[in-house]
Structures are given as structure tokens and as C-alpha cells.
Amino acid sequence: MVNRGWRSWGPPVLLILPSLILIGVFVYGLIGVNFNTSLTDQHHRIGGDVAYVGFDNYRTLFQDDTFVYSLKNLLKYTGAFLVGTLVMGFLWAWLLEKGVKGEGFFRAVYLFPMAVSFIASGVVWRWLLNNAEGDRAGGLNRLFDQVGLGFLQNQWWTDPNWGVVAIALPAVWQLSGYVMALFLAGFRGIPDELREAARVDGASEWQLYRHVIFPQLSPVALSAIVIVGHMSLKVFDLIMAIAGQTNYTTQVPAIQMWVEFTRGDYARSAAIGTILLVIVAFLIIPYLVYTYRQERLTR
């Protein structure tokens, strides 16, 4: 009996055991170590005597104006990035859905920016988003000036209130194509019969979208929000390439984590890392719960 039990569940367990151990040690184990470090006073590269200080590091972080500012920045950036990619992605998918000629070509064109690394595109966008105005203007400001839209010239990422939203511009440019692909797949997944049935029942075009298409697309939209959202929360490379790590207007937690790490303040850096993880978890865990429930329902 024991033997038969082992035969049935033994091999699968053995098969997943290596990855289980690796992930356990290198992901969850290190998350634990990181959390542990964040509770200590290891503010130097080599601590010697390290003492536990409870949640002091978190307390100082939330009392630090710059950190609070960076959290607000992250919120603004994520908002702009999400809205931007969802709107652009949906729009493109919808246009392609409508049956544009050369769909394959456009699909490739829109999807292609995703293949470029954030660092590489960041270097170019750093130049495009140059904040000089008037005679010394470069990049987009220069373009605005030349086509008679001089009033559109602005400070881009150096604006203290909305600067970080300018960083979302290249991010939207890169990720919209991906969201488009997701929506396009969603559209293709809706059987024509459903649309025909709705039309036969006399639904207007808007009603068709409102009551038939959108509900069918909502799981896709949710996936897109989770995927783009968690990328946005972890933004680092784009800001490093465009604005650098010291620039104030584009401070986000990931940049601060790096600054604290390079100065050797491991405890603070670990605390920021933990906060980031918690923020991302707020997004991911409800999604996982939701998909888990969906899967159980369909089973």
C-alpha cells in the first residue's frame, strides 16, 4: 500500500524537487534574508556587531520626505503607464480588428519596440526629452518649435510635480504593442457567432461592445494590468538611462534602493526592497487568487 502510494506521487515530487529547492533557497530564502537584514542596523558595508532594531528602518523611511515623494512618483508613473498602454494597446488592437490592410505588418511594427531594451531606448529618449527650450532646444522641444507648436515645449522629466510622467512616455511606447497583442488575442477569442447573435437581436454597435465584447475582454485586460503594473512598479533601468540615479524629480523606490546599496547602507536598502515587494504583492496576490478561483470554477 505504502509502496503504491510512493509510486504514484514519488516521481512527480522527485521531478519538481530540484526546482523547488532552488526556488526555495534563492527566491524565498533570500527574501527572508533580505527581510532579516532590513530589521538590523547594518548601515555600513561590513557591520561587525549588527543589532536588531525592529521596524526602525521602515519608520525612518516613511518619515523621509524624499522617500514619500518617491512613492508618490511611483504612483503617478504607474497611473500614466497603465492608462497609456491600455488605451494605446486597445486602440491599436481595435483598429487591426476592424480589418486594416497589412495587419501582419502593423502588428510587427507596433510590437517591435518591446524588443529594444529599456537602457538602449532610454539613451535615445534622454536626448528626445531634452528640457532645453528656445534657441538651445533639442529633441522633441526642437520639433515642437519647428512645426509651430512652440507652446508645447516643456520641462519633461525635470518638472518637480509631473516629471516622472515624462518617463512613462517611452515606457508606453515600448509596451503598448504588447498590450495590443494581448487584446488582439482576446478579440480573436470571441466567436463570431456571439456577435452575429447580438446583431440579430438588434444590438447597436456600442451595445455590442458594451455587453458582448468588453465582458469577454476583461480577463485579458486584467492580465495586461497585472503584467504592465508590476513592470511599472519595478521601473529602474529606464530612469537610470534617462535621468540618472541622483536626479530628484524621477526618484522612485527602486532607484533609492540602488543608491542606498551603493553607499553601503544595506539595512535601509533591504527595507526599501521589502516595501517594493509588498507593493507588488498587493497587485499580484489578488490576481493569483482570482485566477485560481476561475480555474476551480471551470474545472
Binding site: 534622454r126 528640457n131 532645453a132 538651445r136 525635470t158 524629480t249
Partner: peptide, 14 residues
């Protein structure tokens, strides 16, 4: 420093 800073170029961050 403030006075000097206001006499500098606007696109410094870039």
C-alpha cells in the same frame, strides 16, 4: 549659490 544657480543653463539635468 542660489544666485549663481539662477544664472545657469536650464537644461543642466540633461
Amino acid at each position: 549659490y542660489q544666485t549663481l544657480f539662477e544664472l545657469t543653463n536650464q537644461d543642466r539635468q540633461s
